[in-house]
Amino acid sequence: MIHFISKRLKHSLVLLFLASVVCFTLVVSAPGNVAVLIAELRGAVAVPGYVAQVEEEIGLNKPLLMRYVDWLGDAVTGDFGISYRTGQAVSADLPQRMMVTGTLIAGSAVIATLLSLLLGFLGAFWPYKLPDRVSRGLALIGASTPTFFVGALMIYGFSVTFQLFPSFGFNGPISWVLPWLTVAVLPAAVLSRVVRVGLEEAMTSPYVLTAKSKGLGRTAILFREALPNITPVFINALGTQVGLMTATGIIVEPLFAWQGVGDYFLAGVRFRDFMVVQACLLIFLSFFIVVNLIVDLAVLMTDPRIRRQWS
């Protein structure tokens, strides 16, 4: 157990290092002279010697390796440099933004989990019957509808027509509902298929025949025999979906006027604010790595076969 965790932690650190290298190279390899860009922003590009001054200021004239070390050292302490667009520190409201995005992902993950378990079990309990067809149809539609369209429909349905929930802003649980639902649709659809197919596969395995021979009913077999067997698979898929939610957040946050990391990233991309893009990208990649680590540990807890390999 300890062995596994320490090994996984080392692996994660290597990945984190690689992610930082990727983020750094991406910005370094960007076309155009950054110093000129900043000089332009400050309206002083025509001033002789000013570009060189900016180069000096942001350390452009140092060797690459030194720049990387400086940048990484700053990034670790939460300093992501100066935004090319606003001239302010990139990290200024990052904690607040991370909280917003965290709220979005956490709520959506819970909704997606509950919804997918419900749909998946409905389908597995009455395979190829009406509930299964409905659940399959919903999953197909959910997986095929673009998130921005889902968001637009949510706003039109629940905010414009029925005025149940506000269509924008981050002011308490009522305002969280629509963004949560919007982000949850796609993962719920995908995960419900994971549950449904996983349960059905488990139901054809020999130990289920044993359970049947023991006189257990279908409900007992589904919950006691099949569910524990698909738990590791489900956790793995959920981890992937939680990672994907960062991408969905990029679409949904601006739609509901949430100031999260996704919204920040998108603004950075729009205005080619490399420092912001870089910072958000590093946050995203670190998030994936942490999620993967948690998923691996959770799978370890739920699957005694894997647990044994490492004990």
């Binding site: 960007a30 990233f265 995203f284």
Partner: peptide, 9 residues
């Protein structure tokens, strides 16, 4: 995210 990062650069 990959695509946006490329477009951003």
């Amino acid at each position: 995210i990959t695509a946006l990062a490329v477009i951003g650069i």
